[in-house]
Write a protein that binds this DNA or RNA. Structure first.
Lengths: 153, 153
DNA sequence: TAAGATTGAGTACTCAATCTTG
DNA sequence: CAAGATTGAGTACTCAATCTTA
């Protein structure tokens, strides 16, 4: 009869493995947006959402990205100061503002997008198409499972 | 001919998906080690390594966990103050110290280990055995690929 | 009162510099 | 000088409280 009180093995813990893989794959690209453009991860994510989906409010970014609202607020403020992001009054709601990338911001996003695309292509080649497909399915299942509510954090 | 200058889609970026999945699966367990035992993530990881593998030096923990050395140093100091970790001189090397969990620390680790095991079991049930197996293979491949050097960070 | 958003205080992280021993 | 480990300063994050508008 097996010993059911074996010590817990962190290295087989799914959240730990996921975190290690996330860190490992993020590291090299982080250098790009940090060293080349002086962006934090949250700032890069805000730009990526606005660059991909167009103008939206801070709240929309929070819902889409699961990034906490104070992080988004400070990232937006920093990006505006640098002239990479513009705020316009939101129609029908005086509380919110429509956020969008300026032309300069769009150029930065385009540059980072190319680098990210290269990095992603490399990762997918490492795994192969079949493994990538199953990996994506599993990740999206975990993400959906993990965020049953409106607002993360 | 397809437009090759489509805006980059963050939501299909592998590092982003991995990070979202890691966050989603970590969130509920984080409540356990934070709310129930007042631990940070690094402190929990240090305890998990010592609890699973026994006494080792701070450097060993760094290599195994890919956690940066100053984070380990401060986590070790905090755990020692709480009486959950003991330092003993390392044989053959006056610079290093052998770290290990005290009896109290082992009890905390046992409690957290059970909770972590439960959480992991739930996640694996959500995905199913087949998907878990392919997921683990892919994650380990990415982790190995991403840490070709001795020391992360 | 609730929702969108921001601010302030405390915590944790990051990077370079430092200390001690090999 | 290398390596194990710690410290200090600056940055980013976290949580509660606040401000404004719906």
């Amino acid at each position: 009869m097996p010993d059911t009180s074996d010590p817990f093995d962190l290295t087989a813990f799914l959240p730990y493995l996921l975190n290690q893989a996330a860190e490992a794959t993020s590291r090299s690209f982080q250098q790009v947006y940090r060293a080349r453009h002086g962006l934090t991860r949250t700032q890069w994510r805000v730009m990526a959402h606005l660059g991909r989906f167009g103008a939206m409010t801070a709240r929309d970014i929070c819902r889409l990205s699961h990034v906490e609202k104070t992080k988004v607020s400070r990232a937006v403020a920093a990006l505006q100061v640098r002239g990479w992001l513009r705020r316009d009054p939101a129609p029908h709601d005086g509380r919110a503002e429509m956020l969008s990338l300026t032309e300069t911001g769009q150029a930065v996003f385009a540059d980072l997008g190319l680098a990210a695309q290269d990095h992603d292509t490399q990762l997918r080649q490492t795994l192969g198409a079949t493994q990538v497909a199953t990996l994506e399915t599993a990740l999206r299942a975990l993400i959906t499972q993990g965020y049953p509510h409106d607002q993360g954090d």
